[in-house]
Amino acid sequence: MNKTPIIQVKNLVKKFGNFIANDNLTFDVYKGEIFGFLGANGAGKTTAIRILSGLSAPTSGKVKVAGYDVYRQTEQIKKNIGYMSQKFSLYEDLTIRENIRFYAGIYGLSRKVINERTDELLSKLNITNLGDKLISSLPLGWKQKLAFSIAIFHKPEIVFLDEPTGGVDPITRRQFWDMIYDAANESITIFVTTHYMDEAEYCDRVSIMVDGRIEALDSPEGLKNTYKAKNIDEVFLKLARTPIGEVGRG
């Protein structure tokens, strides 16, 4: 893997009043890697993702995403990223094709490109005959795969996945990670948050956030060696054992 940084974060601080949500974060994410972002609820993951995706401005620090500055160039950043949350974000009352057309449309893809890629995608997912079915009629696993496919439909540089596998069965989760690998092979950078520790093992590198700070950042192997743990779960518990202020704060 080449080591071109595509996300550069230096001394990022985000405060809400007196509360420090992100406390002096510094890290790089390299092009084409799968970067895992771990942390308990309220550790500051969502705040960081919102800043990286241009939704919210940092209080201080330097942040560049896909080569653009988050203070001044959010427009360009938004064009070059994809986003998928736990809620899958598809419109239940629209068909598969309509959802694709809508999301691809707001990224400015031409009708011709949209039609070509839609056919391509449907046959890849083996659902060519389901294109005109409403999303509400699909099982959860399908929705999740579709949501991810739509998030990378416009071929972004980076895709942010915010707990993308919540509430999905283990087999579907496994299949979902196959899709993530495929996307990474097409040199899309994957930035994924999760609280399934087994999923952290699938990442190229993992950062662990505790109380707004990044406590550790390394490959899964590296982390396990450093903290003398059998798996990432143990690493996480060792790091998070220091009492966390408010557990459960979104």
């Binding site: 995706s53 427009e75 938004k78 986003y83 949350s85 809620k87 999301y103 707001i106």
Partner: peptide, 13 residues
């Protein structure tokens, strides 16, 4: 509620 607002806000719209 659906979470689609987030996706819209992250989009170039």
């Amino acid at each position: 509620e659906l979470g689609t607002m987030e996706v819209l806000l992250v989009s170039p719209l």
